[in-house]
Design a protein around this nucleic acid. Structure first.
Lengths: 137, 137
DNA sequence: TCAACAAATGAACACATGCTCATATGATAT
DNA sequence: ATATCATATGAGCATGTGTTCATTTGTTGA
């Protein structure tokens, strides 16, 4: 909603850099030392990335019920076989699902029951939030 | 590792579409009926998306310790003020953090303690996995 | 050996995401 | 009022992501 650019930065010797004097260096230091390593937090974000797509979430959700072949899942989600297959590969390399071959058919199953817990925790959260924010989110 | 394309699909009346005869329609039907709605699962994936970035994870992790102003966080993560501010906005609109103004300074804090649980569940998972896969992941 | 079929995969594409840069906004003190 | 400072934000850009299309791979039965 910017109206106009009447005047651009008047006189300023060098480009503005945030060098806040108001920070709390002791708090920053202390927090820095108490946080998990940056690598761990990176891995954690990578882990959550797997859940950050509705197709993958739906695939996992389906596999909570039972193992299934690729075609089952594709039909269930009403999506192409290729799309499902690509996502299954990602889930496989993330060690969230495992495969079992039976003739031409490949069956996929959950490889990690812990997933169910995290999934449910998230689900609980959004359902609760949906209630308390009255569908605003 | 494809060698060569000696011959392309010989005689085929129409483009190949996966119409697997081997699917398990009853399983598909049953599972379909037991899964949460597609909207709910979409929301769930959106929720996990917030955790699916290392900058945001680190911000949340910092706020587990204490409320902080934008500059504190920027210094803590060694990133620009703008980058942090953009991410904080996302966290704000997702209702994961709340703000409190004190003069020129804006303090950010966790708005939802449930987050801590989900964070820890994920952390536990990757640490356990790291152990059992012996750093392969 | 080859046709048929389930699944996997590479390329291409359209779209989303995260950062930086420049600047705007809002608050305080002079 | 205006300079200063903390924070917010829009544009632009580079990179990442998910799907489709065309094709390959692997398995079975004729």
């Amino acid at each position: 909603m910017k109206i106009q650019n009447v005047e651009k930065k008047p006189q300023q010797s060098e480009p503005y850099v945030c060098e806040c004097k108001e920070t709390h260096p002791d708090l920053v230091k202390k927090t820095q030392s108490q946080m998990p390593s940056i690598e761990t937090l990176y891995d954690l974000s990578e882990f959550f990335k797997v859940f950050a797509d509705s197709t993958r979430i739906r695939i996992l959700c389906a596999l909570f019920e039972s193992e299934m072949c690729v075609c089952d899942i594709a039909e269930l989600l009403e999506m192409g076989q290729s799309a499902i297959s690509h996502q299954l590969r990602l889930l496989r390399t993330s060690h969230l699902v495992r495969t079992r071959r039976e003739g031409k058919t490949v069956y996929y199953a959950l490889d990690d029951e812990h997933i169910r817990l995290i999934f449910n925790q998230g689900l609980e959260h959004i359902l609760h939030r949906r209630y308390s924010h009255d569908q605003k989110v």
